[in-house]
Design a protein around this nucleic acid. Structure first.
Lengths: 129, 129, 129, 129
DNA sequence: GTGGTCTAGACCACG
DNA sequence: GTGGTCTAGACCACT
């Protein structure tokens, strides 16, 4: 289920964090669901257990999961909310990015095309939650 | 004119590269214009000459500037083209980003708002080139 | 195994890059094989770590190796392909070079001799890959 | 007649030297012919007079031209011979280059194709000398 | 331990 | 004066 790309420049633990966030947003991971164990996931991904641990710690810090010592790591009930808030703050960054594309000669129509494609894709996978 | 943020996680030389690309796109830097010297810019920014050098090398590699040893570093005639091509490839990445925002509950209207703001900003600074 | 000539006009890091490319072509370095560490190789060659780093960066840029921060530097699965493509583009340069030799009075037979010697040498080291 | 490429990595004076050698080989420059003055050529090429001077010095060192103080710079009677000798020594380097191409998967046929093209081009421009 | 970045300062060839 | 390379040694994030 989880997968990482060791060729990527992005840190492995960061890839894992983003992947978990996506799974939550897409409903693959539900509230209170138990995450795989650090050891188990580290073997599945062939990465160092420390790397998985670091990802879980970061997710904990963001309020997306909570760890119960001796029991495991679980998706927080407010996970979606926290991810949403975090994304909110990225809108200004998005504006800057699009501004750059505009200056590079990319037409407004093409950017809108990207927006439509993204929301179309979302519409397909939509389910009541 | 140039400025960098030493607190940023982003490498200094990378910040410089992006800044030059922006200046070219915005028409601040014209084709064949001479860039500041490696040593000069390094003093202006209070960074090591090697850092500026690294940025210039990368810009050279991307075809945005050309360096003439003993003379200086100049904006390439095709600079805008190369930056444009590079940006083209980023559209699919943009789609993915917007998809994430969509999943995070950001409405299509708000994203379109970002697009409009970006192109409005571009419209203001527009000049025939 | 690796060796460089500090007296050569050619930059040290460039010598290293070419040497690695040769080793890949000759099958000395296989896909997914781990390269020596930056520090290790710098000691072996008695050069500065930065110099080795620069060579590895260039090889990474060319797609011949991929660097995983914290793990090491590995030969890319497509290394041979990338080197091949790069070499393809050099055929026109080769023609110009031979043209010069022709004008300098070198007979066609002697040039063909070089070609034969090169392919003979290759035939000796040939192994299925 | 002369022209240089400031975008090239190759030093300007070296480009000039090679160009003169080629002109001699191709019969454009004949023995005892007078070369353009340093000042004149430097203006024609929009380069520093020092650069032209350096090229002439190198050509002198190689025995391809000889300078007569107060009169000018002339093509040496043995120019072709000296260039030829110099080219002789490059055959082993050529072999190595072709060996690399062979390892990169370039077929012998394609290399021979380059050789044929070079000698065909020479045949066209051939004149008794 | 790894790769990546940065500083400080040197030397070289070129113009 | 310029860009390009190199050394010496430091710090960081990641595994």
């Amino acid at each position: 289920m989880y997968q990482i790309d060791i060729m990527s420049r992005k840190p492995l633990y960061e890839q894992l964090v983003e992947q978990v966030e996506r799974f939550v947003l897409r409903g693959v991971l539900a509230a209170e669901e138990q995450m795989p164990s650090v050891r188990g996931l580290s073997e599945e991904l062939s990465v160092n257990p420390n790397t998985v641990q670091k990802a879980y710690s970061e997710l904990d810090r963001r309020g997306i999961v909570y760890s119960v010592p001796g029991k495991g790591c679980f998706i927080s009930p407010n996970a979606r909310t926290f991810i949403g808030n975090r994304r909110e703050g990225e809108l200004s960054r998005l504006t800057e990015e699009i501004y750059d594309l505009a200056l590079a000669g990319i037409t407004r129509e093409r950017v809108i095309g990207c927006v439509d494609e993204a929301y179309r894709k979302k519409g397909e996978n939509d389910d009541p939650s």
